[in-house]
Write a protein that binds this DNA or RNA. Structure first.
Lengths: 344, 344
DNA sequence: CAGACAGAGCGAAACGTTTTGCTTTGTTCT
DNA sequence: AGAACAAAGCAAAACGTTTCGCTCTGTCTG
């Protein structure tokens, strides 16, 4: 039904090779160029990407595997990622791992079957097992948000540890000495943030009683329940660090339902700046991640690597492979009004 | 590099046709079947979808075009949509229109260029212009969430009008007579909800003074500012209908910052049940949309239509095309505690 | 037992591009 | 003027599948 390059050949009298050359930006006589352009317009011709892909073995498609798509952080990143890749002519196939490592593995295999030119992965867990198939197949991979300590791929993330360190330092700077931490040690970002918190507390000579360290999932429930328990302590903390967006959500909920008020009775600082931090009154003080840059750098690294793979294929003696990098972007603290000086 | 069907031919001694038959579930001698299976395993053979796509002109890929991807409602739907399609063997290419009709058009063209087998569109605006290219090309389309009044495509949506009617009825049932409406008439869902509200007010013989009808965008800002203005009225409303998620967000923010409290001073009911409704204390009363069903029905309709297109291509005298439907799912009201009896 | 028929397999022709190596044409340099 | 060279174009061979029409071998039917 749709017009093919052969129809153009018929109309213009030129050869397939010449037309292909035109389509791929080669040099033609202005006269022939015009002929082809007219024919394309008349016939509504469009390149059949499958045929092209078959011979070039490029699909102009990037696979994106996210740990959980119904998550605001993920969506925001996805949004930037998508528009950047689109600008470069790539389509995006997104797969949701629903926090299930097995599904993650399936997704990667599935996307490889679809012959994606590269993969962006926001991994579910700590194990780098899922990297084997793409690495074996020579498909470029960039890890996003979460590192898994594998030096065979690029990775773009945020300085979780340092930013958390600063956040706790900030609480201490306001005079707080009883500081609680609600976080997670099941995902690597959670671990890093935890690490930063602990370091800061140590540097400030602040003890962290077991009752004030709440470890669980990065979930609303965990935030909610932890905050309830903290507020119920005989001698509750005066400030709390909240490890991610969902935890913030749950914790704020718990505070709202309690007789405590923020920041008068309890100061709060959280990781992840997303719409909802605007919902609470006062505005939350938060560590904001540079989402746009995160996405941009990821795309940059990925396309670079794809480009390199192509030259390798062409020349036998290609330049050395660019070293695999772990790019750490800086999150910064934005103060709202949820941290106040400790009252006596 | 990767093994092809020809390698299998060499190993097994069978013909390409037979191997292809196996791959597509045909009947073979058990003996040959075993041979092929062994060869596939040994060679790590995987079907090259591009080659297959070239001849079948099927990509096993669905394009999804959303009006705004950095939006919680969209993400949730996307999540369900993705897993359902994946189960059926389809990959999903998502494009974000960023609320820009022009970009929406580009996205659709782009995806058509990628030879998607079908399109799910959550449209930006009211005009059905973007439907022309896919309809002309005979690509199945299902509209999701927003209808554009074009009977040439299927559509799955929610009974915005009726649900809003019920919501306002509920407010009236609690004795409220001064009811405000914050909504939008720039998107079709907003219009329908508005319609429902107005009908309910009319049925209850409640007047809607101009100052109590706030029309704008489905945005946080609109919700925030409208609520501020409402609360500043000399005789403020005692109950408010909030037209969507973002408006709820803004409005709740405004209430929090004011001296009013909910539901004591002002009752609130909103459209869209998403995580954040849990954030406020009391829990919001909301109209919840059946997101999962929305996605499931969409996929069902789309795959049906794709299936039909295939049979049409095969038989000249195929059965009649299934009629295009507009499927309206029922949203239901879930009461939180944000609506109270009017105080005297 | 002849004829019909089903099952299993085969060869070859698509599908719509890109790419390779070759010809032709025209220009520049000595 | 002739050689050398660049630019532009061409025909044909890929790329990895599916599918069409055919053959062969049994098996069933009457």
């Amino acid at each position: 039904m749709a017009a093919t390059i052969r129809d153009i050949k018929k109309v213009t009298g030129l050869s397939l090779a010449t037309i292909s050359k035109y389509l791929n930006g080669g040099n033609l006589l202005p006269e022939n160029r015009a002929k082809i352009e007219k024919a394309i317009k008349d016939l509504h011709y469009e390149v059949n990407e499958m045929a092209r892909g078959l011979v070039t073995s490029q699909s102009m498609t990037i696979g994106v595997v996210v740990f959980d798509i119904s998550n605001v952080f993920t969506c925001s990143v996805l949004s930037f990622l998508g528009s950047r890749l689109r600008e470069a002519g790539y389509a995006v196939m997104t797969c949701d791992s629903q926090n299930d490592p097995q599904l993650e593995m399936d997704n990667i295999r599935f996307l490889m079957g679809k012959k994606v030119d590269g993969l962006v992965i926001m991994p579910v867990g700590l194990s780098p097992a899922f990297l084997e198939p793409p690495i074996k197949a020579g498909i470029p991979v960039v890890l996003l948000d979460r590192s898994v300590g594998d030096s065979r791929v690029d990775c773009v993330k945020v300085n979780n540890s340092e930013a958390s360190y600063e956040a706790v330092k900030l609480l201490a700077g306001y005079g707080h000495r009883k500081i609680a931490v609600v976080g997670s040690d099941t995902v690597v970002t959670g671990r890093e943030r935890l690490e930063g918190c602990l370091a800061a507390l140590k540097d400030e000579n602040i003890a962290l009683p077991p009752a004030c360290l709440k470890l669980g999932a990065h979930s609303i429930e965990h935030g909610y329940q932890s905050m309830q328990e903290l507020l119920a302590l005989p001698d509750p903390p005066t400030a709390v660090f909240l490890g991610n967006f969902e935890i913030i959500l749950g914790a704020v909920m718990a505070i709202n339902e309690s007789s405590f008020s923020c920041p008068d009775d309890i100061s709060v600082i959280g990781f992840d700046d997303l719409i909802v931090s605007k919902l609470s009154n006062p505005r939350l003080s938060v560590v904001v991640q540079p989402l746009r840059s995160l996405a941009e750098e990821t795309v940059r690294l990925l396309l670079n690597r794809i480009e390199y793979e192509k030259t390798v294929e062409a020349d036998a003696d290609a330049p050395d492979a660019p070293a695999h990098v772990e790019l750490v972007l800086k999150a910064r603290i934005v103060e709202g009004g949820s941290v106040a000086r400790r009252r006596e």
